[in-house]
Design a protein around this nucleic acid. Structure first.
Length: 557
RNA sequence: AGACCCAUGGUGUAACGGUAGCACUCCGGUUUUUGGUACCGUCAGUCAAGGUUCGAAUCCUUGUGGGUCUACCA
């Protein structure tokens, strides 16, 4: 059975068959260093690096740093870290568009010499005015007919800093009547007397995106330049520069950007969430940023799997976040060791268990992975169980602990619930049970059948910890889809719940930062970067699927 | 409304002129010392109308619906 190919893979395979570019495949990931990478970038990274790997090619990392007023090295560093974390490597091919500023300048000069570019003294407003509209053609600038030598001299003057910002631009001379607005004499250089994070004060002019991107691709011999759909209308311009300058023919191919419901990926809106304090920062575990997902406990493999499963096509899409959640659970189920933590404790006293006695019971680390080995858990007279694992008056399908019932403690014994203590308000204070000595896990000869299996920790041995429970950041599937309401009004007030006193089994105190674990029956967790030996902090990556919650929900209705 | 692009179950994606398949979700079931996992099953789709063809999701035409574009941003 052949793996089905997306349309980009099909293009590459057909190019390969034709022997185009000598069978080479070179892609690039071209982030602008003006923000943090998010889930949408992850798709692009996986696509670009993925197809190169698939077809024996290479992928360059190139920072598209042509606008020094919004870009910073802080972003350069975070972007590099995120790509490596995702599992991809550009080896020694770390480039910047700014590496090519001199070459790009020369190419602009060449365009002028060919009579295909001119310096325009018009103001931004005038240029906008003369651009025309979608239904009306534009008007040619009065500076359009300048001589080549005058253009050359003025362009050199722009470079030398002789003119003020905004006073002049270099434009390509194409067609002011083109139905494609991008072809109506687009700007290719503007004056910006702003220091650049890579080139310092060397330049007074900076190239525009279309010019820089097309020609940077060409300079790097990029064979397949993959970008999102909104650049589709730019492709004729991309090709115009390459054709007129007779340089390496990179090809731009557009695919649909990734959208995920209950998430937003607009850099501007993400910035607002940070600036306005809805989240703690770019790496808040609720953010769709790569750094946020990493802190949340998502694994690189799960994100790669997700990127693979969403597919690549040209139609607009909104992926159901449950697919991402599935990928995360699927990966974590296989690799996360199980441990026990009681998030909302209820004390159980095993009245026939000797006071002061402690048994260390072997506990399997991961039923999905026989090589994961065992650990030992202390068992004693007083334990904590989860508060909602006991009900004094249980409904029909409830099969956890209740008076008169038998319940299994995972890796330990079967308990019979004898009695419970409640205060005057009806709050359960503690539960009294008797255990059956012959029901020990692995050597159960008691013959007792227990429907439910509970997690637990020994009161005496458990460590206190903090848990941060995360949920979807928004309450609406498309938070920015309502023009009437600001997306911030849909921030989920319950997206973060902090539990200050949970109890974890002793070995949970020894896990490494960033190590994913499953708290038995409660979900996948990871140690947060704020965690210390004294103050353990666990981030809940995601809950387990919970069919009991589903049953409850159905009965409420 | 001018140009360009897109249209397959609830969601996403295959099928390249020859039996509409896969995944997620939903629903139901089996197994289970995690109400997890695994496994099985149910429901459910070619935007519309013409045309070409023995045969159309696929090619053509028209329509409809959606997206992008009028930054000295990328």
């Amino acid at each position: 059975m052949d793996k089905s190919r997306n349309f980009i893979e099909q293009i590459i395979e057909s190019d390969l068959e034709e022997g185009k570019h000598g069978g080479k495949v070179i892609t690039r990931f071209p982030p602008e260093p003006n923000g943090y990478l998010h889930i949408g970038h992850a798709k692009s990274i996986c696509l670009n690096f993925g197809v190169a790997i698939e077809y024996g090619g290479i992928t360059n990392l190139r920072f598209d740093d042509t606008n020094p007023s919004t870009e910073e090295t802080e972003y350069v560093e975070s972007i590099k870290k995120d790509i490596h974390w995702l599992g991809y490597d550009w080896e020694d091919r770390l480039y910047y568009a700014s590496d090519y500023f001199e070459q790009l300048y020369e190419l602009a000069v060449k365009l002028i010499e060919k009579g295909l570019a001119y310096v325009d003294d018009s103001s931004a407003d005038e240029i906008a005015e003369e651009k025309g509209t979608v239904t009306e053609p534009g008007v040619e600038s009065k500076y359009r007919a300048r001589s080549i030598s005058e253009n050359l001299e003025l362009f050199q003057g722009m470079r030398d800093g002789k003119f003020d910002e905004g006073s002049r631009v270099l434009r390509a001379k194409i067609d002011m009547a083109s139905p494609n607005l991008n072809m109506r004499d687009p700007l290719i250089y503007r004056i910006k007397k702003v220091p650049h994070h890579q080139t310092g004060k060397e330049w007074n002019i900076y190239p525009m995106y279309d010019f820089a991107h097309s020609l940077s691709d060409s300079i790097e011999n990029i064979t397949h330049s993959l970008c999102t759909l909104e650049f589709e209308n730019h492709r004729p311009l991309y090709e115009w520069f390459i054709e007129k300058l007779e340089v390496f023919p990179s090809r731009q191919i557009e695919f649909a950007r990734l959208n995920v419901n209950y998430m937003i990926t607009s850099k501007r809106k993400l910035l607002r969430l940070v600036k306005e304090g809805y989240v703690s920062g770019w790496d808040d575990p609720r953010m769709p940023t790569i750094s946020g997902m990493r802190r949340r406990g998502f694994t690189p493999a799960s994100i790669r799997q997700f990127a693979d499963r969403v597919g690549v096509a040209k139609r607009d899409n909104v992926i159901d976040i449950s697919l991402l959640e599935f990928c995360v659970r699927d990966d974590l189920n296989a690799r996360a060791n199980r441990m026990m933590a009681v998030l909302n404790p209820l004390k159980v006293v095993i009245i026939n268990y000797p006071e002061g006695e402690v048994e260390w019971l072997p506990a399997e680390n991961n039923p999905e992975d026989p090589d994961a080995g065992n650990r030992e858990m202390p068992f004693a007279r007083e334990i904590f169980i989860e508060r909602d694992d006991f009900m004094k008056d249980p409904p029909k399908k409830y099969f956890r602990m209740a008076p008169g019932r038998y319940t299994r403690l995972k890796h330990a014994y079967i308990l019979h619930c004898d009695d419970f203590v409640e205060d005057s308000d009806g709050n359960i204070k503690e539960v009294h049970c008797t255990y059956n000595k012959d029901s020990k896990s692995g050597s159960d000869t008691s013959g007792i059948k227990a429907k439910g299996t509970l997690h637990w920790v020994s009161v005496e041995h458990a460590k206190k910890a903090e848990a941060r429970l995360y949920d979807r950041l928004f309450t609406e599937p498309v938070p920015d889809g309502d023009p009437e309401k600001d997306f911030t009004s849909f921030v989920n007030p319950d997206s973060l719940t902090v539990l200050h006193e949970i109890f974890v089994e002793p070995s949970a105190g020894e896990i490494a930062q960033g190590e994913q674990i499953q708290f038995f029956r409660k979900g996948y967790f990871v140690l947060d970067q704020d965690s210390t030996k004294e103050n353990l902090i666990f981030n809940r990556t995601i809950t387990l699927k919970d069919s009991w919650a589903k049953i409850q929900k159905k009965h409420k209705k």
